[in-house]
């Protein structure tokens, strides 16, 4: 049985009148890739930054590798590596100097050449930080987080704002961390990222964990249904469409109607007939297998990227 390396119990945090965390709890086993999935402002970054020792919680407890992050001991800092969502380095520091600097600060002899080639930065080793592209900066940030071989790696929105090609490169790096048995906690609002990379996912919204399981188990909640997303010429009450054949659930999200159906062909036929009868018109229709997004919509009635 795996041992929990990160334990979080009833974390609370307020920024003025805003409750960022309202009792977040979860455990992460050693070697696990755990995702915090939620929309912007859900409390993901606050949670991860409390675990990194960058913020103090108002209530609850947290333990990482057996250390209290709030105390910020040197042993704690040596046991974790982190890629922060908003951070930078001086423009005039060279790539290999940055690796060397942080290796020295952690008191390790990093294999700089190995790290540079592993993160595709060999050609940029003498380049100034200010001259790197967004993807190169992010790869360097990950290399810096791993320079001291930490047991736990925190990745806060590691692919936010990056193009699909660079995003895939970052996914490969995270897959490599899995092979190295590192424990990874990553936050994301990309469904595909959580589905592809995470062993387990906690869906977080308004400072609460509203669901937590493996991506497969979470999607099982919508199992047996197919998502039919339609846009209509005139708005229709969701309750009206719930009565259609095969419809298990119906919601209006961002002005579009999302139906979950156990019998898609019958539902589509019934929908078209219903619209004709009411002088309405079908403008577009998409059919897909349920995803974590559907789980989120079912739980909150909103999309992740609102």
């Amino acid at each position: 049985m795996s041992k929990a390396i990160i334990e979080v119990r009833d974390l609370t945090k307020k920024y003025g009148d805003v409750e960022a965390l309202r009792g977040v709890s979860f455990q992460i086993d050693e070697g696990e890739i755990f995702g915090l999935l939620g929309p912007n402002g859900a409390g993901k970054t606050t949670t991860i930054e409390i675990l990194e020792g960058m913020r103090t919680a108002d209530g609850g407890t947290a333990s990482v590798s057996g250390f209290d992050p709030q105390k910020g001991s040197a042993q704690f800092k040596r046991s974790v590596g982190a890629v922060l969502q908003s951070t930078s380095l001086p423009d005039k520091i060279r790539v290999d100097e940055a690796l060397s600097l942080f290796a020295q600060l952690y008191g390790t002899r990093a294999d700089r050449t190995g790290l540079l080639s592993r993160f595709g930065l060999q050609e940029k080793r003498h380049a100034f930080y200010g001259k790197l592209s967004g993807g190169q900066k992010q790869r360097l940030a990950i290399a810096l987080a791993l320079v001291h071989e930490p047991r736990v790696v925190f990745l806060d929105e590691p692919t936010a704002g990056l193009d699909p090609q660079v995003r895939r490169e970052i996914y490969d790096i995270i897959e490599e961390l899995r092979r190295q048995k590192k424990t990874v906690l990553l936050t994301t609002h990309y469904i595909e990222e959580a589905e592809r990379l995470c062993d387990r996912v906690a869906i977080i919204d308004h400072g609460n964990v509203i669901a937590m399981d493996t991506p497969r188990e979470l999607k099982q909640r919508s199992a047996g249904t197919t998502r039919i997303e339609v846009s209509l010429a005139k708005p229709v009450e969701a309750a009206e469409l719930r009565a259609l054949e095969g419809v298990a659930d119906c919601r209006t999200v961002d002005g579009r109607t999302v139906l979950h159906s156990t019998r898609p062909p019958q539902t589509i036929v019934a929908l078209v007939k219903h619209l004709e009868a009411h002088g309405n018109e079908l403008q577009s229709l998409e059919i897909a297998a349920p995803s974590l997004e559907d789980v989120f919509i079912e739980l909150t009635g909103r999309r992740l990227r609102e």
């Binding site: 960058m54 974790v80 922060l84 908003s86 951070t87 930078s88 380095l89 001086p90």
Partner: peptide, 11 residues
């Protein structure tokens, strides 16, 4: 610029 917070992670 968030440079200090990067150093804050180090011991």
């Amino acid at each position: 610029q968030g440079i200090l917070r990067r150093f804050r992670l180090a011991p």
